[in-house]
């Protein structure tokens, strides 16, 4: 019944079932790193990219979740670059049910990309630093430093650096 699509194991393992437990995390990261309008596209493109690169996945180098989240982050970056300057996203989102902390939300959205990614992964996805490091492809110490810089930026932005 199956057809050679990518590596045979991919077909046998059923990519959908393999990726399904991580879709929520992928959606959450896409929601943090892209605009609401782009979130679905980011996930869509990430899944397609993941399928195409599935043969490159090495479970010795990280969990499926970390690998998929890294792809989401990469796709989100591409979407961010393509975003038209005439329609910048103000970071407030469009969902009425998101708890209001607009100052903090705007400040987080205004962080440099790497810091924003680290904050999204560590705080909003609640990943441990070690897994954040795998997703970001850097050392744990680098993640800690990035988070520290991000917090410093946020304190400055929010006027809490007294």
């Amino acid at each position: 019944m199956n057809v050679e699509v990518g590596r045979p194991e991919a077909v046998k393992a059923d990519f959908a079932e393999w990726a399904r437990p991580h879709l929520a995390a992928m959606a959450a990261l896409a929601a943090r790193m892209a605009s609401p309008d782009e979130r679905d596209d980011v996930v869509q493109e990430a899944l397609t990219a993941a399928w195409r690169k599935f043969e490159l996945y090495d479970d010795a180098r990280g969990t499926p979740r970390a690998w998929l989240l890294a792809i989401v982050a990469d796709q989100a970056r591409k979407f961010y670059r393509r975003r038209r300057p005439s329609s910048p996203w103000d970071g407030t989102g469009s969902r009425a049910d998101i708890p209001a902390d607009l100052d903090l939300e705007r400040a987080v959205r205004g962080l440099p990309a790497r810091q924003r990614l680290a904050v999204a992964l560590h705080y909003f996805l609640d990943l441990p630093v070690a897994e954040v490091a795998v997703v970001m492809g850097c050392a744990e110490g680098t993640v800690k430093a990035t988070l520290s810089h991000a917090r410093a930026c946020l304190r400055r932005e929010l006027g809490e650096d007294a």
Partner: peptide
């Protein structure tokens, strides 16, 4: 239908879900 309560996700309905 995504049972990963550890991480929230948007109600991404348009395509993949």
């Amino acid at each position: 239908g995504i049972g990963d309560p550890g991480v929230g996700g948007e109600p991404v309905r348009r395509r993949w879900s």
